[in-house]
Amino acid sequence: MGEPATKELLSLEDLEAAGGIHTGRKHIVSILVENKPGVLTRIAGLFARRGFNINTLAVGPTDDDAVSRVTLTLDGALHPIDQVTKQLHKLVNVIKIRDLQPDETIARELALFKVSADGGARAEVLQLVEIFRGKVVDVGKRSVVIEITGTDDKVEAFERLVRPFGLVEMARTGEIAISRGRGET
């Protein structure tokens, strides 16, 4: 029989306080998986079962055709990460998992911004693109599409700066990551 067994009403505060242990930092989890159907669902399902919110998720091939890399980011301030890593290990198609340490990791993402930029605003926007070492990949009469790569901080900084000009839409890939130095991620 499920708890609570008593008739006492549970206060919402008590319910909310019953969370797990949190690390308080962002986690980039790199997962090497067998390139088989359904693997991503199994991984996503594990996170969903614990009520975890995946911030970003990127999947792509690796140097080995049979293996794909899944990179996902989670907010450790919200989610205890340890148990979920152990559970991921139990998935038969998961080969390797790394919870990457931020200072030993190169992480990058690509973002596309559609910004309304006509008249005088266009010059200012283009200046920002230059400062962020971005690229203009499409130019229209009233808008430009800009490509930015970098850490999520950089992408977010760019977003903040162009938003006042009129951000029409934005698409981000989510970070992919690899460890520094010679060893494998």
């Binding site: 159907p37 359904g38 669902t41 399902g45 594990l46 079962r49 139990k90 038969v92």
Partner: peptide
């Protein structure tokens, strides 16, 4: 079947 049972199996195979 595979989707319904995903959280409650050690592993599953959908034959393709």
């Amino acid at each position: 079947t595979i989707g319904i049972t995903m959280p409650i199996v050690k592993h599953s195979f959908l034959i393709q």
